[in-house]
Computed example of a mutant assay.
Amino acid sequence: MHSFCWYELRTTDPTAARTFYIDALGLLAAAGDARWRLASGGPELGEFAPLPAQAAARGAPAHWLGHIAVADVAIAVQRFVAAGASPLGPTQTRPDGNLVAPLRDPLGAVLAVTSRPPATATLAWCDLHTGDPARAAAIYGELFNWAPKQQHDLGPARGSYHEFAWQPDGHSVGGMSDAALRPGIHTHWLFHFAVDDLELALGRVRGGGGRVAGEPLRGPGGARVAVCEDPQGAAFALHAAT
Score class of each variant (00 low, 15 high):
residue 1 M to E: 09
residue 3 S to G: 06
residue 4 F to W: 09
residue 4 F to L: 12
residue 12 T to L: 13
residue 15 T to C: 02
residue 17 A to P: 01
residue 18 R to N: 03
residue 19 T to K: 13
residue 20 F to T: 06
residue 23 D to W: 07
residue 23 D to F: 07
residue 25 L to C: 08
residue 28 L to M: 07
residue 32 G to R: 15
residue 32 G to V: 11
residue 38 L to Q: 14
residue 40 S to I: 06
residue 40 S to M: 02
residue 41 G to Q: 08
residue 42 G to E: 04
residue 44 E to N: 10
residue 45 L to F: 09
residue 47 E to F: 00
residue 51 L to P: 01
residue 53 A to C: 07
residue 55 A to I: 03
residue 56 A to S: 13
residue 59 G to S: 09
residue 59 G to F: 10
residue 64 W to T: 00
residue 66 G to A: 15
residue 66 G to D: 07
residue 69 A to T: 08
residue 69 A to E: 04
residue 70 V to G: 01
residue 72 D to Q: 06
residue 76 A to R: 02
residue 78 Q to Y: 09
residue 78 Q to E: 13
residue 79 R to D: 13
residue 81 V to Q: 03
residue 83 A to N: 07
residue 85 A to K: 04
residue 89 G to I: 15
residue 89 G to T: 14
residue 90 P to Q: 10
residue 92 Q to L: 15
residue 95 P to E: 14
residue 97 G to Q: 15
residue 98 N to Q: 15
residue 101 A to L: 06
residue 103 L to H: 01
residue 103 L to R: 00
residue 105 D to L: 12
residue 106 P to R: 07
residue 110 V to I: 13
residue 111 L to F: 15
residue 112 A to K: 02
residue 112 A to I: 08
residue 113 V to Q: 01
residue 116 R to W: 01
residue 116 R to K: 10
residue 120 T to C: 05
residue 121 A to E: 13
residue 123 L to S: 00
residue 126 C to K: 01
residue 126 C to I: 11
residue 127 D to I: 01
residue 128 L to P: 00
residue 129 H to Y: 13
residue 130 T to D: 03
residue 131 G to M: 15
residue 132 D to V: 11
residue 133 P to L: 10
residue 133 P to D: 07
residue 133 P to A: 08
residue 134 A to L: 12
residue 135 R to F: 04
residue 136 A to M: 04
residue 136 A to Y: 03
residue 137 A to M: 14
residue 139 I to R: 01
residue 143 L to S: 04
residue 144 F to Y: 12
residue 145 N to Y: 12
residue 146 W to M: 01
residue 148 P to L: 06
residue 149 K to L: 11
residue 149 K to T: 13
residue 149 K to E: 08
residue 151 Q to S: 09
residue 151 Q to V: 12
residue 152 H to W: 12
residue 152 H to A: 10
residue 152 H to E: 11
residue 152 H to M: 13
residue 153 D to Q: 03
residue 154 L to T: 08
residue 154 L to S: 07
residue 156 P to F: 08
residue 157 A to E: 15
residue 159 G to A: 09
residue 159 G to Y: 05
residue 161 Y to D: 06
residue 164 F to I: 12
residue 164 F to K: 05
residue 165 A to T: 09
residue 167 Q to E: 12
residue 167 Q to T: 10
residue 169 D to Y: 07
residue 170 G to Q: 06
residue 172 S to F: 03
residue 173 V to K: 00
residue 175 G to V: 08
residue 176 M to W: 04
residue 178 D to M: 06
residue 179 A to P: 02
residue 180 A to V: 05
residue 181 L to P: 00
residue 181 L to T: 02
residue 181 L to S: 00
residue 183 P to W: 15
residue 183 P to V: 12
residue 184 G to V: 15
residue 185 I to N: 03
residue 187 T to L: 10
residue 187 T to R: 07
residue 188 H to P: 05
residue 190 L to S: 01
residue 191 F to H: 12
residue 192 H to K: 05
residue 195 V to F: 09
residue 200 L to D: 08
residue 200 L to Y: 03
residue 201 A to W: 03
residue 206 R to K: 15
residue 207 G to K: 09
residue 208 G to H: 11
residue 209 G to S: 12
residue 210 G to P: 08
residue 211 R to L: 07
residue 213 A to D: 14
residue 218 R to I: 14
residue 222 G to H: 14
residue 223 A to Y: 02
residue 224 R to V: 11
residue 225 V to Y: 07
residue 228 C to M: 06
residue 229 E to R: 14
residue 230 D to H: 04
residue 232 Q to A: 12
residue 233 G to S: 10
residue 236 F to G: 00
residue 238 L to G: 01
residue 239 H to R: 04
residue 241 A to V: 12
residue 242 T to W: 09
